[in-house]
């Protein structure tokens, strides 16, 4: 590439990056502004006051919501890792009659939009009396066809000789699963972990349905509350809330970006 093309490319890269990141940048700026500044349409705050941040924690039990979100996301992450890796292990390392059929059944659940099943699920949770509980928020998401598929694709790349060598060494299936398969597949487990944490943290509809009070409510619903509870919205405070909510996931994404990109494409395509 010659210098001119390179310069052009950099220009394009910067321009797109700015355009794409603008909403977040803008929200970040607003979160430090006073109402007056917002009204005047400033882009840079006069000073980086933390006032809005203090207010948002004051107005909402945001810390509690954050904790709830963290508990829910972590539980779903761990649950999914366990349930999906077990299923994927069976699909790859155990030969049994009907394996293809059950695998097809698993994959077919990807075609059922979750929203099409939410009414009976809602009723189920109602009957189980799981409203406003962590289990109501997490249990339905422990099994995931996508996660099973992703891990299966990765397990398939483990040479079968590793399995055979373990058999000769005298490992039973559980030992082989825990001592060899899981450690060897660390990267794809991290991928799935990051992915499931992110998507659970960002969930909106289900927490909206099954939380009716603050006890287990997640931050996403908190944001909606923040935006609707006041008639004249104090945008500075709302944006402070937004920034607080997206920071954990953005950090996780920045750390796991490479990992996620590799893992997801591998799982999706091979």
């Amino acid at each position: 590439m010659n210098i001119r093309n390179k310069l052009l490319l950099y220009l394009l890269l910067f321009f797109s990056a700015f355009l794409l990141f603008f909403p977040i940048l803008y929200a970040f700026m607003i979160s430090f502004m006073s109402s007056d500044e917002i009204l005047h349409g400033k882009f840079f705050p006069a000073a980086f006051h933390l006032e809005n941040y203090l207010k948002v924690f004051d107005r909402l039990p945001l810390l509690k919501y954050l904790l709830n979100s963290f508990i829910v996301s972590t539980s779903v992450m761990i649950g999914q890792l366990i349930v999906c890796s077990m299923a994927a292990y069976a699909f790859v390392f155990i030969q049994f009659k009907g394996r293809n059929f059950i695998f097809f059944l698993f994959i077919s659940t990807m075609m059922i939009p979750w929203e099409a099943t939410m009414i009976p699920n809602f009723i189920t949770i109602l009957k189980l009396d799981w409203f406003n509980t962590y289990q109501g928020l997490t249990f339905p998401f422990f099994a995931a066809a996508f996660g099973t598929f992703l891990l299966r694709q990765n397990f398939l790349t483990i040479p079968k000789e590793l399995h055979e060598a373990s058999q000769i060494a005298g490992l039973n299936t559980v030992q082989f699963f825990i001592k060899v398969v899981l450690p060897v597949s660390k990267t794809s487990l991290v991928t799935l972990g990051v992915y499931s944490f992110l998507s659970t943290w960002n969930q909106y509809l289900w927490p909206l349905l099954v939380t009716t009070n603050d006890s287990v409510r997640t931050v996403q619903i908190g944001l909606k509350q923040l935006q609707t509870q006041e008639t004249a919205t104090d945008w500075g405070v709302v944006m402070a809330g937004v920034i607080v909510v997206i920071i954990p996931t953005l950090l996780l994404l920045f750390l796991g970006q490479k990992q996620l990109q590799k893992g997801l494409t591998q799982g999706a395509l091979k």
């Binding site: 390179k6 490319l9 950099y10 890269l13 797109s16 990056a17 794409l20 990141f21 909403p23 977040i24 803008y26 929200a27 607003i30 992110l198 943290w201 960002n202 969930q203 909106y204 996403q220 619903i221 944001l223 909606k224 923040l226 935006q227 945008w235 709302v238 944006m239 809330g241 937004v242 909510v245 997206i246 996931t249 953005l250 996780l252 994404l253 920045f254 970006q257 996620l260 990109q261």
Partner: peptide
């Protein structure tokens, strides 16, 4: 290119943003 990692992070950043947060920002 030098520094391409930075742009990759920026371009993938919306994946880390929830629908609620993004909608509130766009609402504004």
């Amino acid at each position: 290119l030098r520094g391409i990692g930075f742009f990759r992070v920026i371009y993938s950043s919306t994946m880390g943003i929830s629908v609620a947060a993004s909608s509130v920002v766009w609402l504004f």
